[in-house]
Design a protein around this nucleic acid. Structure first.
Length: 255
DNA sequence: CCAGACGTTGTT
DNA sequence: GTCTGG
DNA sequence: CCAGACGTTGTT
DNA sequence: GTCTGG
């Protein structure tokens, strides 16, 4: 769950919504209606200023790469499988616990995508999947997913290029509400009142555990979209257009 | 001691 | 890097 | 999450 | 079937 989302808000809007003054994003990076693992998107983190590591952490918005690459990884490929971390175990897993204890992030999303198998069988004998877009009922309300981030040093980076790759994962939990009808897992969120403590590296893991929560019942809306979203090469506002649900096979043959 | 994993989801 | 399994 | 590759040698 | 890339 939560393997694709939309991140299209201008960074200026994100900076305002999350009270971030330190914008370190790449102005070349376009809005992304099809944000997928291994791609970069804006993420909010908080770190002490470089010149004084004992000073209070300051918020930054940066383009991080989705798919957490642990610091000990031999290559970055492992990241494509580390896109989610279970809330139940994130504090214990060797790959995640260090990040969870001191490198938590807020992942701002317009909404996220889910695929539900249908009755209709496609070629290959596998059920066709209907994609849905799930988003805050109030589009003005920023949805901040609970995330963790990690640094990885590329020992084989070419001279002159930045050898540091900064990656993130989205924390998931059991789905309990309407979203649970599409999937049994859903992303954790952090509400605005908890942003400060969540981002603070000094907040311990046990406290952080209590700061995240599943999005509240009724706070999310969901609608069917076209399968354009399936292919990550497709992008743009068309992906968010409501579309008819995939119908039964008999209907398709009748036309 | 060394070797090998280190993760999640969904589907059968 | 650190833990688990053998 | 889905799509697409999954391989090597030698030659252009 | 399974892994990698996006």
């Amino acid at each position: 769950m939560c393997g694709r989302y939309a991140s299209t808000r201008p960074v200026a809007d994100l900076a305002r919504a999350f009270d971030v003054r330190d914008d370190r994003t790449d102005p070349q990076l376009p809005a992304d209606y099809n944000m997928a693992p291994t791609k970069r998107a804006p993420v909010i983190i908080a770190q002490p200023p470089r010149e004084d590591r004992d000073a209070p952490a300051e918020r930054q918005v940066r383009n991080l790469t989705w798919g957490l690459v642990p610091s000990w990884a031999k290559d970055r490929a492992i990241g494509s499988r580390m896109i989610n971390a279970r809330a139940e175990t994130v504090a214990e897993k060797p790959s995640y616990r260090r990040a969870f204890s001191s490198r938590r992030a807020l992942v701002p999303v317009d909404g996220f995508y889910e695929w539900l198998p249908t009755e209709r069988i496609g070629k290959g004998g596998k059920p066709l999947k209907q994609p849905y877009f799930i988003h805050p009922a109030d589009p003005e309300e920023p949805l901040a997913l609970a995330g963790i981030f990690e640094y990885w040093h590329d020992d084989h980076a070419e001279d002159g290029t930045d050898p540091w790759l900064v990656t993130y994962a989205v924390i998931t939990t059991t789905a309990t509400d309407d979203v649970g009808r599409v999937h049994d897992r859903m992303p954790m969120a952090v509400t605005a009142e908890h942003w400060e403590a969540w981002l603070d590296p000094a907040t311990d893991a046990a406290t952080a555990q209590d700061l995240m929560a599943a999005p509240e019942l009724g706070s999310l809306d969901m609608y069917a979209i076209s399968t354009l979203v399936n292919n990550v090469r497709n992008n743009g506002p068309d992906l968010l257009k409501p579309a008819p649900e995939i119908t039964a096979e008999t209907d398709a043959e009748a036309t």
